[in-house]
Design a protein around this nucleic acid. Structure first.
Lengths: 181, 181
DNA sequence: GGAAACCGTTCGTCGCACTAACGTTTCCGA
DNA sequence: TCGGAAACGTTAGTGCGACGAACGGTTTCC
């Protein structure tokens, strides 16, 4: 790669210094930066996060609440550290998430009689109903996010992203919480 | 979309409660969440940011320093708010970035004689040399990020991401700083 | 000659990823 | 068997990026 960039004399330096007609130099992002894969990823990820975040906020939830509820209903009751490994949420932050969910009656936290270090977290019926609502919200956000893409294009995109993610997820040690999926 | 999920009676609830052999329920992330485009985007974007961030940190830079330097060399000298529009960096945060760059002699900030509200920011020769080093670092990071993809796959990925980004960038009002590219 | 808009700047907020440490409990090997 | 290592839940705190509010100085528009 290494996109050579001109430092030569032909720079468009007339944009300032002459108080030209319209006022200020171009506000366009340089193509060099605009096409950087890392930047494209960051920007679109931000849009995506904003979409789902705004949707979930309408139900008083954050994406962590959603992810944890999914992990619980799909994987069954589990301890907090297991949930942390399943979701990628740090076990430090898992505490607050479960506090929220428990305070609203969506999960229940009980000491594990088999291993008194652990808490067993279980989804309640209300939690399942809540997740159902969040599910629809998230799905709508995905649709809105991928709106300009056809079905097959969406598939190739998720395929490529999955390959990138899997590639960089393997190899890293997982001493604590994250690097899960 | 709306991936229907089972809330039925056949849940794998045997994972806990019987102190089973291996100890704890599965730690695998549910496929439902793992394949969510928004989540894929977020995770891979994090990997990408970490890659370029670690690289740039070796030169004592952050991605903003790089982006601003690119915007300056490719777009010519500009005011801070113009830079903010070009780069997507909030004008609040632009102050600190320019402070850093100016303190290291990579840019120069001078009051604009034509409009004394503005500062004219200019790259120095040292700044161009610095950008050249950062360029190589960033390009290496892109290569590392896209390692598992072929050339054509990389092109389709950036193409799809560009379409998504452009689609969501248009229409949103730009009252303050961002939403630039 | 104001009012409105713009510019640079400071300060504060929120969410997320992450680290460090601590008390409790369980496991394991000498 | 007993003592240390490890896992668990929890608290507190850090760093960063995105963003909002407000303010003094300046320019533009009516």
């Amino acid at each position: 790669m290494h996109t050579e960039h001109e430092t030569g004399p032909s720079g468009p330096t007339d944009a300032l210094g002459t108080a030209d007609d319209d006022g200020m130099a171009s506000a366009a992002t340089p193509a060099r930066v605009r096409s950087l894969p890392s930047r494209l990823l960051a920007m679109t990820a931000m849009h995506a996060d904003r979409l789902v975040g705004e949707g979930l906020a309408a139900e008083g939830a954050r994406k962590w609440h959603f992810v944890v509820l999914v992990a619980l209903t799909d994987g069954g009751p589990a301890s907090q550290s297991t949930l942390s490994r399943r979701t990628g949420v740090y076990r430090s932050d898992m505490v607050a998430v479960l506090n929220d969910l428990a305070a609203r009656g969506f999960v229940e936290r009980a000491p594990d009689p088999e291993d008194r270090r652990r808490n067993v977290v279980t989804v309640t019926a209300a939690g399942r109903g809540y997740l159902h609502r969040l599910d629809e919200i998230v799905d709508r956000a995905q649709d809105e996010l991928l709106a300009p893409l056809s079905r097959t294009e969406r598939a190739t995109l998720t395929g490529l992203l999955t390959r990138l993610h899997d590639h960089h997820a393997t190899g890293a040690p997982a001493p604590d919480g994250p690097r899960s999926t």
